[in-house]
Computed example of a mutant assay.
Amino acid sequence: MERNIALKLMYNGTAYHGWQVQKNAVSVAETLEKALATVVCHPVKCTGAGRTDAHVHAETYVANFRTTSTIPCDRIPLAVNTRLPKDIVVVRATQVPPEFNAIGSCHRKEYTYRIYNSRLGNPFYVDRAWFYPKHLDEGIMQQAADQFVGTHDFRAVRSVGTETRTTVRTVYYFNVERRGDLIESRVCANGFLYNMVRAMVGTIVYAAEGKLAPEDIPAILDSGNRTLAGPTVPPGGLYMTQLWYDEDVL
């Protein structure tokens, strides 16, 4: 009998070209599928919670796959982890209903972007936070971030890539917090466009630099013009940090 298994995992994305399987590059999905196949003794296709870009990390991620193997769920994480590189770890495996789909069943997602904001770099944040030596005012960043909250057309803060039916999304919160030299921007939405979080962070950094005012952002969103918003910040500071499901998979 075929089972549908959901995996909760985490990964450091530095060595990978994102989640999605690609022809000429190493991906998280392909690495995980190969490890799973050796455990369940048949080819495996994983569906992931979202297409994280190259070098982006996940503190929380969910993927599901189907298997005819009878291996108990509580044994899957250890069995798979011994076959995975150290930068991908499966935390939990749960049997879920046949209709469960890691991306389709996800109601909302949270990404966190980390900026190491200090005059001097920190070797422990290399590829894990964006080193930004000029002081940023997190208060202005928060004022700018508030402008993105709500239901809007987010065309102005996406890179051209995967085509979607609509560019309208709902952002539930966009919170900026400083802890010492680390600035964390947490953004939660019902879905994200290609590079949307990184472009939103680039825009609030532009606001802190005085290159645009927080109150300019609604007009930028209305324009749909990508060139009016801030730059797409580097991928190493971005983490998928929370996911919301009805099923108990986390």
Score class of each variant (00 low, 15 high):
residue 6 A to P: 03
residue 11 Y to K: 09
residue 13 G to D: 01
residue 22 Q to V: 06
residue 22 Q to L: 08
residue 24 N to D: 13
residue 24 N to V: 03
residue 24 N to C: 10
residue 25 A to W: 13
residue 25 A to F: 11
residue 29 A to S: 13
residue 34 K to T: 11
residue 49 A to T: 02
residue 51 R to Y: 01
residue 56 V to E: 00
residue 57 H to D: 01
residue 58 A to P: 00
residue 60 T to F: 01
residue 66 R to V: 01
residue 70 T to L: 05
residue 70 T to H: 05
residue 71 I to K: 04
residue 71 I to S: 02
residue 73 C to E: 01
residue 78 L to C: 06
residue 78 L to V: 03
residue 78 L to I: 02
residue 80 V to S: 02
residue 82 T to L: 08
residue 82 T to I: 08
residue 89 V to H: 10
residue 91 V to W: 07
residue 100 F to N: 11
residue 100 F to R: 11
residue 101 N to P: 12
residue 104 G to F: 11
residue 107 H to L: 12
residue 108 R to E: 13
residue 109 K to H: 06
residue 113 Y to E: 02
residue 117 N to G: 04
residue 119 R to F: 13
residue 119 R to Y: 12
residue 124 F to G: 06
residue 128 R to V: 02
residue 129 A to T: 08
residue 138 E to S: 13
residue 140 I to W: 08
residue 141 M to V: 01
residue 143 Q to C: 09
residue 143 Q to P: 02
residue 149 V to D: 03
residue 153 D to E: 14
residue 155 R to F: 12
residue 159 S to T: 15
residue 163 E to L: 15
residue 163 E to A: 11
residue 165 R to M: 07
residue 166 T to V: 08
residue 166 T to N: 07
residue 168 V to Q: 09
residue 171 V to C: 08
residue 176 V to P: 00
residue 177 E to T: 12
residue 181 D to G: 08
residue 186 R to A: 10
residue 187 V to D: 01
residue 187 V to M: 07
residue 188 C to I: 00
residue 188 C to S: 08
residue 189 A to D: 03
residue 191 G to C: 05
residue 196 M to D: 05
residue 196 M to E: 09
residue 198 R to T: 07
residue 203 T to H: 12
residue 204 I to Y: 06
residue 209 E to W: 07
residue 211 K to A: 13
residue 217 I to C: 00
residue 219 A to I: 06
residue 221 L to C: 08
residue 223 S to G: 12
residue 225 N to T: 14
residue 225 N to E: 15
residue 226 R to G: 13
residue 227 T to P: 06
residue 227 T to D: 14
residue 229 A to W: 04
residue 235 P to T: 14
residue 239 Y to P: 01
residue 241 T to F: 02
residue 241 T to Q: 03
residue 245 Y to P: 03
residue 245 Y to M: 12
residue 248 D to I: 14
residue 250 L to Q: 14
